[in-house]
Simulated scan of single mutants.
Amino acid sequence: MELTYRRFDASKASEADALIAFLTADTWPFHGAAVVDADQVRSRLADGRFDGDDTRTFWITDGDDVLGLVRLMDLGDGTPVFDLRIRTRYRGQGVGGHALAWLTAYLFAEFPGIRRIEGTTRQDNTAMRRTFRRCGYVKEAHYRDGWPAADGSAVHDAVGYAILRRDWLTGTATLPTWDDEPA
Rank of each mutant, 00 (worst) to 15 (best):
D77N: 09
V81W: 07
R85N: 15
R87G: 12
R87F: 09
R87V: 10
T88V: 08
T88N: 15
R91V: 04
G92M: 06
G92S: 10
G94K: 12
G96H: 12
G96K: 02
G97H: 06
L100C: 08
L100E: 05
L100S: 01
W102M: 05
T104A: 08
A105Y: 01
A105P: 03
Y106W: 09
L107Y: 01
F111E: 00
G113P: 01
G113R: 02
I114H: 11
R116V: 00
I117E: 02
T121C: 09
T121Q: 07
A127F: 06
M128F: 10
R129L: 08
R130C: 08
R130N: 10
F132K: 12
R133K: 11
R133T: 15
R134C: 01
R134M: 15
R134W: 10
R134K: 15
C135A: 09
G136T: 11
Y137K: 06
R144L: 08
D145M: 11
D145E: 12
G146Q: 07
G146S: 02
W147K: 14
P148H: 13
P148R: 12
D151K: 03
D151G: 05
G152K: 04
S153K: 09
A154C: 02
V155S: 12
D157Y: 01
A158T: 02
A158Y: 04
V159A: 02
G160T: 06
G160R: 07
Y161L: 09
Y161T: 02
A162L: 05
R165K: 11
D167A: 11
T170R: 15
G171T: 04
G171D: 11
T172D: 12
T174E: 15
L175Y: 14
L175S: 10
P176Q: 10
T177P: 09
T177M: 11
W178Q: 02
D179T: 14
